[in-house]
Design a protein around this nucleic acid. Sequence first.
DNA 1: AAGCCGGGTGAACAAACGTGCAAGGATGGC
DNA 2: GCCATCCTTGCACGTTTGTTCACCCGGCTT
Lengths: 335, 335
Amino acid sequence: MIEQQAARPAEGAETVSGKMRDALRAAHLYYMQDLTMDAIAHELHTSRSSVSRLLSHARASGLVEISIHSPLDLPSRIEHEILERFEVGAHVIPVPDHASDVDRLDRVALSAARILGRFIDSNQTIGVAWGSTMSAMSRHLVPKATHNSEVVQLNGAGNGRTTGIVYASELLRRFGDAFGARVQQFPVPAFFDDPETRRAFWRERSTRRLLEVQAGMDVALFGVGSPFAEVPSHVYQGGYLERADYEALSRDGAVGDVATVFYRADGSTDGIALNERATGPDFAVLRRAPRRVCVVSGRAKLASLRGALAAGLITDLIVDEGTARALVESPGDGE
Amino acid sequence: MIEQQAARPAEGAETVSGKMRDALRAAHLYYMQDLTMDAIAHELHTSRSSVSRLLSHARASGLVEISIHSPLDLPSRIEHEILERFEVGAHVIPVPDHASDVDRLDRVALSAARILGRFIDSNQTIGVAWGSTMSAMSRHLVPKATHNSEVVQLNGAGNGRTTGIVYASELLRRFGDAFGARVQQFPVPAFFDDPETRRAFWRERSTRRLLEVQAGMDVALFGVGSPFAEVPSHVYQGGYLERADYEALSRDGAVGDVATVFYRADGSTDGIALNERATGPDFAVLRRAPRRVCVVSGRAKLASLRGALAAGLITDLIVDEGTARALVESPGDGE
DNA sequence: AAGCCGGGTGAACAAACGTGCAAGGATGGC
DNA sequence: GCCATCCTTGCACGTTTGTTCACCCGGCTT
């Protein structure tokens, strides 16, 4: 069963609109007039609990937007430095150094999901990679109404029930729902076993149509993989790659991947054998997107991140504080 | 002692910036990452109470901005109707009908203060009237950093210690502080006793300089007075006007005033004797400001509001719901 | 018609939050 | 150098808020 509709049509529009109206009014009273939920419940002739739920709904559905402006004379030191050094807009997410890697990922993903709205607009094609970072983000997206947008899957995927990572179809659907966008699935494995199969598949009309959509992306959204870090990206756990593949990658000098396409520390990809079997877009295609948002969490991904920056894949970076700090320190440092 | 500085200079900039930095970080953690204040206190090595205060500070000082977007397919019915009928951008503030007039004013003023930031920008001259509405607003302004702005008093004032209304100097200072703007006081009474005195005063060089500043306003901010309503505006309580003045106003057909200048239901002002002694700007001058924001609360002011609209004084209206509803109903209805 | 189901409601409880208060520390005047 | 003063801090309390649970109500199935 393919789930692929945009924002669902008016079903009981009466009720829906009524709820929306209430939520809106509650939000006004709560956030603009500082009334207590009790008082609001009274004005709305309902219970306090319902008001609490109404407000949660208002926040989760983007009726209420909370933004944080750092005063212009105090622009985050690190963000500014990243902009200078890498020509990339940075959002640094504060996370304590002692946080666990899962905490860190969750917190970065949550913040990223809330920031994301700024990059999305109507009439856009949004490319979304498949991986643990995107999966975590998908759980917290704040809806934003757009017209005529389209979400397109950038790389193939297996299912990752094992680790809380979500079916690609589910992930894409969440993005599509949040922005009222059509969804273009890409039903292929993360890696083909045989390069020839991939080439054949790429000649298919349906595949070519999808690749054209990818090529017309306005926004690309992805994380980075780091195959040789202590905590390898999920793509490497799920058995997508064999030991031999790792050895080949190591021989080829790969330090990371974006949407299953690997690169070296200097950003080059030529001659990395595995890429012949990968399903993600060629970097030349990716770079055509004017906005390329990368979400990274954890110092383990530092080397991958450096490579992706060297490859010029990133225009906007959302990254946890520790990794950001490490990034701007001397490039030679290990972990 | 005249209080007239812009945002105070760096005093203990070290500490201030440190506090700001903490507030910013706390806001990120609280509003973007949904941490509890307890957790934030731990990360910041301080107590939970301090975090609570830090967050209050962050909100009050505009570091955190909370805005409410009604979905575009559900634009407030009334606001749209006001736009159609009067060609005026409206913000309708929900307030229950049974609220007292003071409650109503407070709530409208609070909301208005939080909306105000949208109208203010750098390099602007902001004209501010003196009255109970502006006084209530001044208590809740959300700071917004601007450069080279100027706040100028539109009309003279007595002091209103009696009813919680605040000295004009204090009121102006609050606006100036909130936007980091220079402040131009206008130290005259609300009404002169003798028209001749006014004319003489108007010939003074210092007065003419101030009038020129007023004439160059980018934004004007004012309420409306309604001299014949049950609950008369403070200007009429403080003994600024005599019984004879009211009778004259009544004879002249005045229904309201903006910054001490009176008008009739059709918006005309010619031949209203009292205006010869008023200190507010001529409407021709006022209308030169491209943005003219009017804050109104209470149906008692409905007739005044209609007059001000007829006079074309308003480009943006902030008004409570009950009054807004009354406004768009048949114009003939009384209260 | 009876019965299941999903979504919504209010009561009750536990968690999270704001604020008055007293103590501690810094600041500026003399 | 000392004191008066102001600002900040953490605690304790009372209030406000999120969430669980049992329940109800309308729609749809068998």
